[in-house]
Write a protein that binds this DNA or RNA. Sequence first.
DNA 1: ATATATATGTAATATTATAACATCACTTAC
DNA 2: GTAAGTGATGTTATAATATTACATATATAT
Lengths: 165, 165
Amino acid sequence: MLTNARLVYQPHDQVRILNAAISRAHDICEAANVRLTPTREAILKLLWQGHQPMGAYQLQQQLAKVSEKPIAPPTIYRAIEFLIDLGLVHRIHSLNAYIGCPFPSSEHSNIFMICEKCNTVAEVSDKRVNNLLEAITDKVGFKLHSQTIELFGLCPNCEPGDSDE
Amino acid sequence: MLTNARLVYQPHDQVRILNAAISRAHDICEAANVRLTPTREAILKLLWQGHQPMGAYQLQQQLAKVSEKPIAPPTIYRAIEFLIDLGLVHRIHSLNAYIGCPFPSSEHSNIFMICEKCNTVAEVSDKRVNNLLEAITDKVGFKLHSQTIELFGLCPNCEPGDSDE
DNA sequence: ATATATATGTAATATTATAACATCACTTAC
DNA sequence: GTAAGTGATGTTATAATATTACATATATAT
C-alpha cells in the first residue's frame, strides 16, 4: 500500500518537500524528452502546495498574483493536460479540480481521499483494490482499462473523535 | 455481488422492464411522500432507457421531442437532483452525465462500468470493495462517508476477444 | 541562420450548472 | 369550496468549467 497520507495529514517541511518534488519532475520531463516550462512548473507547484485540489480558474487567479501577464484558460488547460499525461497531476472528477500526484512515475491506480471539511486530498494506491476490481469486472465480462476512485469523508485532523496516528 | 450487467449487456424486453421500474419508482415516491411528476417521470424514463448516461442538456433535447413546451435547464437539474436524492438516478462524475439506478431503494455503494466504445454503463455493488476501502481508509485515519467508483473499459459486446456470458 | 517542432497568446464560444424571483398547481384546513 | 401554505415549475440571467481555431513566439536541431 502506497500512500501520502502522513505527508498530507501531518506537519512537514513544505519547502524542502516541494523542492525535491520539483526536482524529480524535472528529471521525469528530461527522461521523457519534454519541457517543464515556467508556466507548467508554476502550475505544478500550486497543485503540490497544500495538498488541496484547485480548479483551472483558481489556478489562473493564483498565477496572476505571481506572473506579470495574465494567463488565459487555454494555456492553463494545456499545462494541466501536459502534467496529467506525465502522471505529475491527477484530475479529481467529482470536484472538477486538479491535484499534484505524490508518487509520479510509479505505475499505480489511485484512490483519492477527499476531506469534506478541510478539502485536503490524500492519495493511496493498493494492489488489492485493483485485483478485486479486476475479479469483479472479469466475472461480468467487462475488460477493465482504467479507473477513478474518489472517497469522501473526514481526514484525521477533521475527525472529531480521536486525532491519533 | 449485485449487478445489472446481464440486463445491460444482453437483449431483453425493454418495455416490460421499464414499466416495472417506473411502477417501482412510483411506489418509492409514495412511500417517501413525494411526487413523481410527469417531468420527473419523463426524465427518469430517459435515464433508464438504453443504459446510457445522458447529460442535462441531452435530456432537454430529448424532452423537447416529446413535450410541447421546451423545458429549461433549472427544471432539468431540479428533477435530476430529486431523482438522485431518492436513489433512482446516479451521477457519473467523469462524464458529467446521469444514469438510472437499476436497484434503487437497496442501500448500496456503486461501481460503474463505463464502456469506452458503446458508452453503456452497468452497475455493480460488492460488499468486498466497501470492506476493503474501509480497511484502507481506517489504516490512515480517514473516516469514510461515501464513494465514487467509475471504471472504464470495454463491455462484453465491444470486447473483440470473446463475446460469451 | 534557418527550418521544424513545440509552446503560448488571443478571441470567441461551447458546455455544464446555478441563482433569483415569479407563477402555477397541488394539498390541507377551515 | 375557498384561502393559506407548500411544493413544483417557468423565466431570465449568469456563473463556472472547458474547448476550438488560428496567430504568434520560443526553443531545438541541422
